[in-house]
């Protein structure tokens, strides 16, 4: 049972969190033509890396959306940043 750092609340039990997505993917502007490949990449492509990863999580109890950096092998948490405070940074 892990402890995750919500940027707003602080450390909380992992049961309160929900994995959302990998960061760095932007919704294509659907008012213009989007190729099937680009849309499929947006919908389905995931890196699913081993080791150091960046992920978007939601702290469900306070609904904070944030980027968490952690190690998917050791389960060590390396840091978290609110998606709001760092909209640019979260996008890489």
């Amino acid at each position: 049972m892990q402890l995750f750092p919500c940027p707003f609340c602080g450390l909380r039990n992992e049961r309160e969190f929900h994995y959302m997505a990998e960061p760095g993917k932007f919704r294509p502007d659907t008012s213009s033509q989007i190729s099937a490949e680009d849309w499929a990449a947006y919908l389905y492509d995931t890196r699913n890396e081993k080791g150091r990863v960046r992920e978007i999580w939601m702290h469900q109890t306070c609904r904070e959306l944030f980027v968490m950096e952690r190690d998917s092998v050791t389960m060590n948490v390396l840091g978290s940043t609110s998606l709001r405070a760092s909209a640019g940074e979260a996008a890489e």
């Binding site: 929900h18 959302m20 919704r27 978007i56 939601m58 469900q60 609904r63 959306l65 998606l83 709001r84």
Partner: peptide, 10 residues
Amino acid sequence: LMLESWRQDG
């Protein structure tokens, strides 16, 4: 949950 995630992301 869906509303809240779109609200904060995008």
